[in-house]
C-alpha cells in the first residue's frame, strides 16, 4: 500500500503540495475574509500573461509570472483606493484583459503547446528537486509571516480604520500582503494550474469558516483541510491514473460539502453567500 511513497517524484509532489496547501490556505483565510475570494483568480490570470511573456522571451516563465502578478496586485490595491470602480468591475476587467494578452502573446510566439498545458492544469508530479526547495522556502516564509502577524492582519481585515488608529502601518502591511498573495498564487499554479488556483485559496477556508468556530481554530482547521485534500488528491491520482490537480480540488469540494451537510443536519444555518463575494 505504501509503496507509492518510495517513488521520489511522489515524495517531491507530496512535500511541495503540503507546504503550498498550508501557505495558500493560511494567507487565503484573510483574502476570503476581506471578500477578495476571486483575487487569486485575477492574479493567476495575470500570471498567465506573465507566463506567456516568459515563453516569448525564452526566460523561466514563473519568474515573469511572479513579476506580472506582483505588479497586478499592487495595481489593484492602488486602483481600488484611487478610482471609483468597484471591486468586481476591476476584477472582471483584469481577468479578461490578462487572458487576452496571454492569448495574443502566446499565439505570436507559437507557445500554445503542451508546456502551456502544464501551467493551465498544474504539474505537481513533474516538480523537480530544485523547484521543490524554492517552493518550500517560499511557502514557509509566507506561513511564518502570516503566523507572526496574524493578530495585526486580523485587526486590519476586520476593522481597517481602527487598526490604523491603533498605530499599525496599514498601508505597508496591505502591500506586503498583496505581494505575498502573488507569491502563493505562483506556487499554487505549480500545484493545480492557473485555472484552479483560487480553489486552493478559497475552498479550504470556506470549509473552515463553515465549522463556525473562532479565529485561531479556523486558522488551524483550514490548512488541515487543505492538507488532507492535497494528499488525498495526489495519492488517488496516482492509483487512478488521473490528473492530480482535478482530484485535489474535487476532494476539497467533497470535504466542504460534507461539512455543509453535517451543519445543515445539525440545524445550524450557514450563509456562504456572504463569503463568496468581492
Amino acid at each position: 500500500m505504501l509503496d507509492i511513497l518510495t517513488y521520489e517524484f511522489i515524495q517531491r509532489a507530496l512535500i511541495s503540495g503540503v507546504v503550498i496547501a498550508v501557505a495558500c490556505s493560511t494567507l487565503g483565510l484573510f483574502l476570503v475574509l476581506r471578500r477578495y475570494s476571486l483575487f487569486g483568480d485575477v492574479l493567476a490570470h495575470t500570471a498567465l500573461s506573465g507566463i506567456a511573456i516568459g515563453i516569448f522571451l525564452n526566460v523561466y516563465p514563473l519568474i515573469t509570472a511572479l513579476l506580472t502578478s506582483i505588479l497586478a496586485s499592487i495595481g489593484i490595491t492602488k486602483m481600488k483606493s484611487s478610482t471609483r470602480l468597484s471591486g468586481d468591475t476591476l476584477i472582471a476587467m483584469l481577468l479578461i484583459g490578462s487572458l487576452a494578452v496571454a492569448i495574443v502573446i502566446l499565439s505570436a510566439s507559437n507557445g500554445l503547446n503542451v508546456n502551456l498545458l502544464s501551467y493551465l492544469f498544474g504539474s505537481i508530479l513533474l516538480i523537480r528537486y530544485e523547484d521543490m526547495i524554492v517552493t518550500i522556502i517560499a511557502s514557509l516564509s509566507v506561513i511564518a509571516y502570516v503566523t507572526a502577524n496574524r493578530d495585526k492582519l486580523l485587526y486590519i481585515t476586520m476593522d481597517e480604520e481602527q487598526a490604523r488608529l491603533s498605530g499599525l502601518n496599514v498601508q505597508a502591511m496591505n502591500y506586503i500582503f498583496m505581494v505575498l498573495a502573488s507569491i502563493i498564487v505562483i506556487l499554487a499554479i505549480r500545484l493545480v494550474g492557473v485555472l484552479l488556483v483560487s480553489s486552493l485559496i478559497v475552498l479550504p477556508n470556506i470549509a473552515g469558516i463553515m465549522l463556525g468556530k473562532g479565529f485561531r481554530y479556523t486558522l488551524i482547521a483550514s490548512p488541515c483541510i487543505a492538507v488532507v485534500a492535497v494528499v488525498a488528491g495526489i495519492v488517488s491520482s496516482y492509483y487512478l491514473n488521473i490528473a492530480a490537480s482535478g482530484m485535489i480540488v474535487i476532494t476539497n469540494l467533497l470535504i466542504t460539502l460534507c461539512i455543509f451537510a453535517y451543519k445543515s443536519f445539525k440545524g445550524e444555518s450557514i450563509s456562504i453567500r456572504q463569503l463568496i463575494r468581492i
Binding site: 493578530d151 485587526y155 476586520m158 476593522d159 498605530g167 469558516i209 473562532g214 479565529f215 479556523t218 463569503l275
Partner: peptide
C-alpha cells in the same frame, strides 16, 4: 460597526485585537 455573521472570531479574540494597540 458591523461584522459578518460568519466571520470566524470569538468575542474574546475580538477584544484581544486591542492588545496590538497596547503594545504600540
Amino acid at each position: 460597526f458591523s461584522i459578518d455573521t460568519n466571520f470566524p472570531i470569538t468575542v474574546k479574540e475580538f477584544v484581544s485585537t486591542a492588545l496590538t494597540t497596547l503594545r504600540y
